[in-house]
Simulated scan of single mutants.
Amino acid sequence: MWKKIVFVFLASVLSGCTGTTDINGSIAHHPGAKKGSENTYFIDFNGHEIVKLAPGARFSAGRKDATRGVANKNGETGVFVVKGDLKDKDYQVIPTYRDYIYGASYALKDDKGEPSPFTKYTIISQCDQKDRYTSVSDARGNTVLFTTEKPCDILIEFPDAL
């Protein structure tokens, strides 16, 4: 009996087995999320491989550490299982404007390089000037991920700037 326990323990250690963390992301409090409706999202786990996707999620552009999907009406992504011990600061859940493969988001900062929270912005596709999205940045100064169907330049404007 003792030999079996030691063998199982050693086999686990030698196989390079690592721990995992269950993550249930939320975009419910992001100013860019629409309350009471389904919102698309992008999550970047910054190098931590996703072991199990949440229902309805898919890997983003062939990456094993980033995912896209649709949050439920409460703004939750569902549970992901990710390799390693993750804390909230180790990954970012970003609401997206549509669910296309091309896109960009911004981290707004003031003149001192500090985050610019709750700043009104408008993102405009340069492929179609009517394709625009207006919102306010979140508490960390982040905008939504503005996505387009094909590669396009995008422009960000600040309607309240003096």
Rank of each mutant, 00 (worst) to 15 (best):
K4A: 09
I5K: 02
F7E: 13
F7Q: 12
S12A: 10
V13D: 02
L14S: 03
S15I: 06
C17F: 10
T18Y: 12
T18P: 09
T18D: 10
T20P: 10
T21P: 04
G25E: 00
S26L: 01
H30C: 12
H30S: 11
P31I: 07
A33P: 03
E38L: 06
T40S: 09
T40R: 11
F42G: 02
D44Q: 07
G47W: 02
G47P: 09
E49C: 04
P55I: 07
A57D: 00
R68L: 13
R68N: 06
N74W: 09
E76Y: 10
G78E: 04
V79N: 10
F80A: 03
V81W: 15
V82R: 07
D85C: 06
K89R: 14
D90V: 02
I94W: 05
I94G: 05
Y97M: 12
D99P: 05
G103A: 08
G103L: 13
G103W: 08
A104W: 08
A107R: 13
A107M: 13
D111E: 15
D111L: 15
D111V: 14
K112S: 15
K112L: 12
K112H: 10
K112E: 03
E114I: 09
P117N: 10
T119W: 15
Y121D: 04
Q126I: 02
K130M: 10
R132K: 12
Y133N: 07
V136F: 08
D138H: 05
D138M: 06
D138S: 07
A139I: 08
L145N: 03
T148G: 04
T148Y: 07
T148N: 03
E149G: 11
E149A: 09
P151E: 02
C152K: 06
D153I: 07
D153L: 11
I154N: 04
E157H: 06
E157P: 00
